[in-house]
Design a binder for these strands. Structure first.
Length: 568
RNA sequence: UGGGGUGUAGCCAAGCGGUUAAGGCCCGGGGCUUUGACUCCCGUAUGCGCAGGUUCGAAUCCUGCCGCCCCAGCCA
């Protein structure tokens, strides 16, 4: 099943070394989200690495919820995360919750106390902060550091029994208050916290900290390779300390990689939450959000996301990937399978002046130019049609070769028309084009051999169904620094927010086209259906659609050489 | 000023002492085209953060310097 043909990144190199040296005889990873929010494309990177690596080496991957902080967690996030993982096409081996291990973790903590490497500290949070020292100065040992094991054990049990108020005491590891690695200065292992937990209810009033729970749980599950992002690199000595002190023979190996950043994309959970709470977006699944729920709703195929992630690669260098790469992957994933259809987003009426009165022709249109097996459909063609407003220019610039006064263009699958005149409203905008049609130019006929530079998409009045198109752009206008350095009164450097990220929001991240027209088949397609609107882009039907008013999200636009030429 | 990481093209990223430094995205040029799409060709680092050194030979080894990221939660 697995085809391990050599390592394709540094993590796999480590794994192959470990397999070769006999350190491990199998591969077991885990994906360990905290159920406190929605998964986004950044989490998807970790997810693909965790599941993908296990898969490659014929191993297994667990899904584990690190639910050790009930104040921030909720069962609804658990459900959403599970759904997102399945959507990406991954299946976990075992499902675990940190909360299922609370009794075991408590037991291990007691063991550490008995060994004399953990103690109960009565200092206030403020006292602890002060005595921890700074980055450049060592910390000071707590006055409670040398209590007897018996006293510590008693105190810890009483913490668990609820004898002390929140924050009154903590359990700490006894490591080294002078360590240059601040994390090793007697880190907190347990805190008292009275808060209803979404799974254990009020059974516990003490909760383990990440640095205690995570390594132990990895070890208890039999994880061999604990893959995580770079910010945990400095936690590794502590990770190793915990599993070693707990007595695990063959502890997991933690390997860290760089997390994903995307241009013009907010990836911070805190900021995403603000967008939702302040109503900037409609919710966690607003198609402008970088969450998997949003991408699914917008119409991204899951294969596009895994393809994107595999192209991005895995390394330890901080990076920001160009959003154009994701778009490319989405287009590639959609190009083969999405049926083509006609939709005119910003219609302008075309009247064919020499079209036989009352005549309506039926035209066969292929559903996909490269896949005849996808069949075809019939569209009507008549003397009253609609084309895209931007496909006509009264005063065309040099490289514009679509319709203009006196110029010809082909209506795809139909006839060649020539613009003979136009009508404007009081404000000067074009409301109607008068065109002559070459009756010998019907698509596929002998007279059609003539070449015309432009082929336009169109809809005849008989077939045009009104709908709303939602066009999306990146939610940020630019990638600006989050912080800038300023000098305070004493001339010291301080960091403060350069500009609130809310000021960098792109006002054009959502554009509505509510006069848009589409084919009947498009209007009647089920929610989630995806089409390539010819010459416009890929679109997916949104759940907001009603029978009277279909709504389509632009998944991604088509590449457009003209738009590019216009700007350059 | 402490510790841990990291720096190869506009953006990612291979490279692990020995031909002219992979590949993808972006970009430019051309072919094809009843989607200015798709596709197909071609092109884009005498250069690998900078400066020295070792070597017949350095992106790869050594030394020094510089930039950027992470760490002082009873968050994860």
């Amino acid at each position: 099943m697995s085809e391990a043909r050599g390592a394709s990144n540094f993590i796999e190199e480590f794994i192959e070394q470990d397999l070769a040296s006999g350190r491990y005889d199998r591969v077991k990873t885990r994906f360990p989200p905290e159920p406190n929010g929605f998964l986004h494309i950044g989490h998807a990177k970790a997810l693909c690495i965790d599941f993908g690596t296990a898969q490659k080496y014929g191993g297994t991957c667990n899904l584990r919820f690190d639910d050790t902080n009930p104040a921030k967690e909720d069962a609804v996030f658990v459900e959403n995360i599970e759904r997102d993982i399945r959507w990406l096409g991954y299946r976990w081996d075992e499902l675990h919750f940190a909360s299922d291990f609370f009794p075991k973790l408590f037991e291990i903590a007691c063991g550490l106390i008995q060994k004399g490497v953990a103690y109960v500290d009565d200092q206030t949070p403020e006292e602890m902060r002060l005595s921890r020292g700074t980055l450049t100065t060592p910390g000071v040992e707590s006055p409670f550091r040398n209590r007897s094991a018996e006293e510590n054990l008693d105190l810890f049990h009483r913490m668990r029994a609820g004898e002390f108020p929140d924050g009154a005491r903590v359990l700490r590891a006894k490591i080294d208050m002078a360590s240059p690695n601040v994390l090793m200065r007697d880190p907190t292992l347990y805190r008292i916290l009275r808060h209803h937990h979404h799974r254990t209810g009020d059974a516990w009033c003490i909760y383990p900290m990440y640095d205690f729970q995570h390594p132990l749980q990895d070890a208890l599950e039999g994880v061999t390779h604990s893959l995580c992002s770079l910010e945990y690199e400095i936690h590794r000595p502590l990770y190793d300390w915990v599993v070693r002190e707990a007595g695990f023979e063959r502890p997991p190996r933690q390997i860290e990689f760089a997390r994903l950043n995307l241009t013009r994309t907010i990836m911070s959970k805190r900021y995403l939450r603000r967008l939702v709470e302040e109503g900037v977006v409609s919710g966690w699944d607003d198609p402008r959000m970088p969450t998997l729920a949003a991408m699914r709703r917008r119409g991204y195929p899951p294969e596009a996301i895994s393809d994107f992630l595999s192209r991005v690669g895995v390394s330890k260098a901080d990076s920001t990937v160009d959003g154009a790469l994701l778009e490319h992957c989405v287009r590639e994933a959609l190009g083969e399978g999405a049926p083509r259809a006609m939709a005119v987003l910003d219609p302008v009426e075309v009247v064919l002046t020499n079209w036989p009165e009352g005549r309506v022709e039926e035209i066969r249109m292929e559903n996909h130019p490269d896949h005849p097996e996808m069949g075809d459909r019939t569209l009507r063609f008549s003397g009253r049609l609609f084309i895209e407003r931007e496909d006509f220019l009264e005063d065309p610039p040099p490289k514009f070769f679509r319709l203009a006064p006196g110029r010809e263009a082909r209506l795809k699958g139909g006839y060649i028309v020539r613009c003979e005149g136009l009508e404007k409203d009081d404000s000067g905008s074009v409301v109607k084009l008068f065109c002559s049609v070459d009756m010998d130019s019907k698509s596929g006929s002998a007279g059609a051999g003539r070449k015309v530079k432009a082929t336009l998409h169109w809809l005849s009045a008989e077939d045009a169904v009104p709908f709303t198109a939602r066009l999306y752009e990146p939610i940020l206008m630019e990638d600006a620094p989050q912080e800038e350095i300023e000098l305070d009164e004493e001339g010291a450097e301080v960091e403060r927010p350069a500009r609130d990220f809310m000021d960098r929001l792109n006002p054009e991240s959502l554009a509505l086209r509510d006069r848009a027209l589409c084919e009947k088949a498009v209007a009647e397609a089920p929610v989630g259906a995806r089409f390539q609107f010819l010459r416009v882009g890929y679109f997916a039907k949104d759940p907001d659609s009603t029978a009277e008013r279909p709504v389509y999200n632009r998944v991604v636009p088509l590449k457009d050489a003209w738009q590019k030429a216009k700007k350059g």
